[in-house]
């Protein structure tokens, strides 16, 4: 490769005086002075969130209203800042979803610890925990910032479920004579 020595021209007097540079800069800023704002006036205007946005983690129910979490505690283990605390519980035998066997008795996510990494969503075998669109969480006390199970379901709502695997399992069990 040929080496091309670039000639470094000495600055002209006008350049050294810095004044044309300043005038050029002033022209640029003057143009910006009359251009529309690039910022958003936040509480009134909300940004359009892109799909896949990772807001606060929430718990969701399936379309039949069944809570999807089976308190396997994988998310609790994977959570890097240890923001999740789950108290597992059993589903009573007379409940319609008794075949799912387990559900969380209490489920807390400490939003002061959560780093919105999304690992809990990734690890969940039940697709029960989702990072959805809430990005503005405020509270007056630390306790308020610890989301309990009820609050997590409030925030999460219901998401469509293409698998409904527990319903399939129940159907298979019924068809196969419930042999276990």
């Amino acid at each position: 490769m040929a080496i091309v020595p670039l000639e470094r021209k000495p600055l002209t007097l006008a350049e050294r005086s810095y004044l044309p540079g300043i005038v050029g800069g002033l022209k640029t800023t003057l143009k910006h002075l009359f251009q529309p704002n690039v910022t958003m006036e936040y509480p009134e205007q909300r940004p359009a969130l892109p799909p896949g946005y990772r807001g606060a983690p929430t718990l969701v129910k399936d379309p039949h209203g069944r809570e999807k979490c089976v308190s396997c505690q994988l998310c609790e283990f994977v959570c890097p800042p240890k923001a999740i605390r789950i108290t597992p519980g059993e589903i009573p035998a007379d409940a319609p979803t008794a075949h799912v066997e387990k559900a969380p008795k209490e489920f807390e996510i400490d939003m002061l610890r959560c780093i919105y990494c999304g690992l809990c969503q990734e690890v969940c075998p039940e697709e029960a925990i989702w990072l959805q669109n809430q990005f503005s969480l405020t509270g007056y006390t630390r306790e308020e910032m610890v989301h309990n199970k009820q609050r997590l379901y409030e925030l999460g709502g219901t998401l469509p479920d293409p698998h409904l695997k527990w319903d399939k399992k129940l159907a298979a069990e019924v068809a196969g004579g419930a042999s276990h």
Partner: peptide, 10 residues
């Protein structure tokens, strides 16, 4: 205000 307008802020 001037700084804001120059920087495209309100």
């Amino acid at each position: 205000k001037v700084s804001a307008w120059i920087q495209g802020r309100p």
